[in-house]
């Protein structure tokens, strides 16, 4: 592609590669190693020990692969992974549908569009802890607004956060409320960057509204959708603040996402080594998922020759 344009592309120096590019990525690489690789490596190291906070690490027992062996047969971890996948499936599916629909609706310059857009992205700006608190009070069984208003249409007060199914619904609902705007913003930005010639051409060719959306617009922002999906997927595995405050993972383990499970195991049950082992599993899952998505549809693929 580059050969067809007139833009000058620096030719590699004769006689070998240059070190200059590596020099430019060096600062980023150092930050990555210090801020990301080191803690991950440390957690990996910790996962081979049985260490209790407040004792010298030198005294901690090296338990070898015990934590990993325990991990493989731990029904609680399995349940928590299952909860996380279910949570991810429902939230991402619904968020994508609502977020993309909203973006398509508000993409045209209708009256007050900017007001709507601002309102729609508000939840995104609220800190997760505050989101957790707001919804905890809304869902409160005794004094919550949700039960109060349901009372008007004759629905008995529900124990939203104390019933396995309702609590799961509550965290999914809260997540959708908070994160749909994220999809919305990304998609609307993508839609607005679409070249108008293409849309015009499709119109001239007689495409109707639906065809325009499904055959022109969405395929053209495919890579953006994929990035949004990927980021949400990783977020699902990182999510914990809202559930920590909303339900604490309960009742039982009904809303205990994997990251919250790790937190509870590490700091409530004081099993730091074991929690580290679960963290390693978490990284592995996210890594595989991310890799999978990148392989299926690499958003950078078309640009690999830059």
């Amino acid at each position: 592609m580059a050969e067809e344009t007139d833009i000058a592309v620096p030719k590699p120096r004769p006689g070998g590669r240059t070190l200059t590019p590596y020099f430019f990525v060096l600062p980023a690489a150092i930050v990555m190693i210090a801020g990301l690789m080191y803690p991950v490596a440390d957690a990996f190291y910790l996962s081979f020990f049985d260490w209790k906070i407040g004792t010298k690490f030198a005294k901690a027992d090296n338990v070898g692969f015990d934590n990993y062996i325990r991990l493989l047969s731990d029904p609680d971890v399995r349940e928590s992974i299952w909860v996380t996948f279910r949570f991810g499936f429902w939230t991402i599916l619904i968020e994508m549908v609502i977020g993309v629909s909203l973006a398509l609706l508000l993409e045209k310059p209708i009256r007050g569009a900017s007001i709507f857009r601002t309102i729609f992205i508000l939840p995104l700006m609220v800190s997760p802890v505050v989101v957790g608190l707001i919804w905890r009070y809304l869902f409160d069984a005794r004094v919550g607004w949700i039960n109060y208003y349901l009372g008007f249409i004759g629905i008995e007060p529900q124990v939203w956060l104390g019933d396995a199914e309702l609590a799961f619904f509550a965290i999914v609902f809260t997540d959708i409320w908070q994160w749909t705007p994220f999809i919305f913003i990304i998609v609307i930005a993508g839609l607005q960057a679409l070249p108008s010639e293409v849309l015009e051409a499709s119109r001239i060719d007689g495409a109707n509204w639906w065809q325009q959306i499904f055959l022109v617009k969405l395929p053209m922002i495919r890579s953006i959708l994929l990035i949004a999906l990927l980021m949400r997927l990783i977020d699902v595995f990182r999510a914990m603040e809202v559930m920590y405050i909303l339900t604490g993972g309960g009742p039982g383990r009904a809303t205990e996402l994997l990251s919250l499970h790790i937190y509870n195991r590490a700091f409530d049950a004081q099993l730091l080594g074991y929690a580290s082992a679960i963290s390693v599993l978490l990284i592995l899952i996210v890594f595989i998922l991310s890799l999978g998505i990148l392989v299926v549809g690499n958003p950078m693929k078309d640009k690999s020759d830059i």
């Binding site: 409160d140 005794r142 004094v143 124990v159 609590a167 009742p251």
Partner: peptide, 17 residues
């Protein structure tokens, strides 16, 4: 209503209110 979601503050509030 809601005991399965009560911590200390919720449960005492139920009595106090």
């Amino acid at each position: 209503t809601g005991i399965p979601s009560y911590g200390f503050s919720e449960m005492s509030a139920a009595f106090l209110q």
